[in-house]
């Protein structure tokens, strides 16, 4: 335990170089927009740091310099128009600097036009269902059995021995690399939310409405996320796994999931 406390102190001080287990920052992600989001996040973070250093610096200086010492007389001033105008204007300027790139990224995020493919994701308590538009491919995606067993209150399985504990599913969502995938989200019961940090996407699945979002993954790999809106008892147990494959591998996978192929190998 002490080691953890100690490490955390180091962690707090040396923020950004995270070791494998000590993720301290938002992932840069694997899409153009996730990188932009990350940059925005860092930009506003640095502004806050700068303001913080300045403001806290002045405060600390004042706390030391202006503490009561023998013979010291407090000043009596109680307003200054000039100062007030300055510290009203400067924050406004900073905010304007922040708003412009944010708005630009936001507009791109909302632009779901001209996708290469469309997937309809429907949320259920507590699993996801994916349907590939224009293909005969549809399946449920639920928490992997290994985690499902280990997560029980009375299970004696140590979560550390389970690979990707709570972040693994039986049937991941599979998409090709470098393609604009439009995701249409809805829900069958309560509000859920589809979140994969590396794709920088989070969008609510709302019963009776269809929400749109999109991503274009640039790097092959497996990306994990979770349902991000409280949806009842097992809200913590409906992970999302996205497998990004090379186009050929994706085509092969798609073919294997077509109904004819499915008859021989029913699941997985």
């Amino acid at each position: 335990m002490l080691r953890k406390v100690y490490l955390s102190v180091i962690g707090l001080l040396g923020a950004s170089n995270a070791s494998a287990d000590w993720t301290l920052n938002m992932p840069r992600g694997v899409t153009e927009l996730s990188a932009e989001t990350y940059a925005l996040h860092m930009q506003v973070f640095y502004w806050c740091c700068a303001i913080g250093v300045l403001v806290f610096g002045v405060m600390i200086y004042s706390l030391i310099r202006h503490r009561k010492s023998p013979g010291a007389e407090p000043a009596t001033f109680s307003h200054s128009m000039k100062a007030e105008v300055i510290w009203t204007t400067i924050p406004i300027i900073i905010l304007l600097i922040l708003v412009v790139p944010s708005a630009r990224t936001l507009i791109k995020l909302e632009d779901t036009r001209k996708p290469d493919m469309t997937i309809v994701a429907t949320a259920y308590q507590w699993r996801w269902h994916y349907r590939y538009q224009g293909q005969d491919v549809a399946f449920y995606s639920s928490l992997a059995r290994t985690s499902g067993v280990a997560r029980r209150l009375d299970s004696s399985i140590d979560p550390f021995t389970v690979e990707n504990y709570l972040l693994d599913v039986d049937n991941p969502l599979v998409v090709p690399v470098g393609r604009k995938v439009r995701l249409l989200l809805t829900s069958n019961d309560v509000v859920h939310s589809w979140w994969v940090p590396e794709l920088a996407i989070k969008k609510d699945a709302i019963p009776g409405f269809m929400n749109e979002t999109w991503f274009k993954a640039d790097v092959v790999g497996t990306y994990r996320g979770q349902c991000a809106e409280l949806c009842g008892m097992d809200h913590g147990y409906m992970p999302i796994v996205v497998k990004v494959l090379e186009p050929q591998a994706y085509a092969a996978w798609l073919a294997s999931r077509q109904p004819t192929a499915l008859q021989s190998a029913d699941t997985n």
Partner: peptide
Amino acid sequence: PMHFLGLAGMPRRIPDYSTQFADFNSI
């Protein structure tokens, strides 16, 4: 530490979490 947990991707309102969030949670 909750800032780090959030940035690393831990959702709120969950009773159990993946192992990479363990350290900050125990702190």
